[in-house]
């Protein structure tokens, strides 16, 4: 062993190592080693690239059907379904009035058996609502964004105005009564016509017949205040009103009855009270049918027969 005092230092170990290599330094081929390592790097990069290409191809394989599916869903999308998402539907059952405040500040009163569909947020340019039934509108004025009511057989365009619409999808007749302001109405496929205050227009979808008359508008939307106003109206119309308001079915046993004219104002009266008043003032008699149950166990609508005395 070497003299430790002198040589057992890092310096000497280092020197010894260098002067006593474990193997012949000229056996070490640096170039060959570099070539080997470069090959390793390239091969690994190749595998990484291959893996990348594999995933890329897999992604392509997956994305093509995805695009096709998206396109299919987009092209075949159900318009009504799409609209459903952002829409609110208010239903007022027979016998019940409802009041709705729309997002633009407009107020709508819904008569019995009415359905109103409106967006949670109106899109700029058009405030579109869908109506099935009878409703009285007080529309907030906004000329830039006209208020449009779409029904089964009519499209009504207003900016700021009050009007009443009767448009039950199961009835042939659609009617609009102007209270104030100005609206344009287009029935069926006809071009739109302007309506002036105090006019009432009716359209029969089955006959295509359209009528226009001057009227006292309040009579047509007094229902929103709980009033039923009849001024020389046919009993047929009166019974329609009663059916709508009280959720009953009135059956005319004598068809000629429907043409008799009637004049009355009812305010918050019960059906029994109204029937009693009608029986007193007209030559008619009401008979309540026994209520039958449906197969589901629910009671059907109360049926009332009307006879001429």
């Amino acid at each position: 062993m070497i003299n430790t005092e002198l040589h057992d230092t890092d310096e000497f170990i280092n020197l010894w190592q260098i002067t006593h290599p474990a193997f012949n330094p000229s056996d070490i081929d640096v170039e060959k080693a570099e070539a080997t390592i470069r090959k390793k790097i390239r091969r690994r990069d190749y595998f990484i690239m291959k893996a990348f290409l594999y995933w890329q191809r897999l992604a392509a394989v997956l994305i093509i059907p995805l695009i096709v599916l998206s396109a299919y869903l987009y092209l075949t999308r159900d318009v009504a379904e799409c609209q459903e998402t952002g829409y609110q539907v208010i239903k007022s059952p027979y016998g019940i009035f409802s009041q709705v405040n729309l997002p633009d500040g407009s107020n709508v009163w819904l008569n019995g058996g009415t359905e109103l569909k409106y967006p949670m947020k109106f899109t700029p340019g058009k405030r579109l609502v869908y109506l099935n039934g009878e409703a009285y509108f007080e529309v907030t004025s906004d000329t830039k964004n006209p208020f449009v009511v779409q029904t089964n057989q009519m499209e009504l365009t207003a900016t700021g105005t009050k009007f009443n619409i009767e448009a039950y999808a199961d009835k042939a007749q659609t009617a609009v009564t102007m209270v104030s302001g100005k609206v344009d109405v287009a029935f069926g496929q006809s071009p739109s016509i302007p309506l002036s205050v105090g006019t009432r227009t009716c359209y029969n979808g089955q006959t295509g017949q359209q009528t226009l008359e001057q009227t006292n508008p309040y009579k047509w939307y007094a229902w929103k205040d709980g009033l039923m106003i009849f001024r020389d109206d046919s009993l047929g119309y009166v019974f329609n009103r009663l059916e709508q308001t009280f959720n009953v079915k009135i059956i005319l046993k004598d068809p000629t009855l429907s043409n008799d004219l009637y004049r009355a104002t009812f305010e918050d009266e019960s059906l029994d009270e109204i029937i009693r008043l009608l029986e007193m003032t007209a030559p008619i008699k009401f008979v309540f049918q026994k209520r039958s149950k449906t197969i589901d166990g629910y009671y059907e609508k109360q049926k009332i027969d009307v006879y001429r005395i």
């Binding site: 290599p21 474990a22 193997f23 330094p25 056996d27 640096v30 080693a33 570099e34 390592i37 390793k40």
Partner: peptide, 28 residues
Amino acid sequence: LFKAYYKDLVLFGGWYLPDRVACEDIVQ
């Protein structure tokens, strides 16, 4: 860097592991 250090590192490894091939593998 490879050219500068490879040989010296293999020789240094030889101090611990007197096997040239093993040392070259390690350094690579």
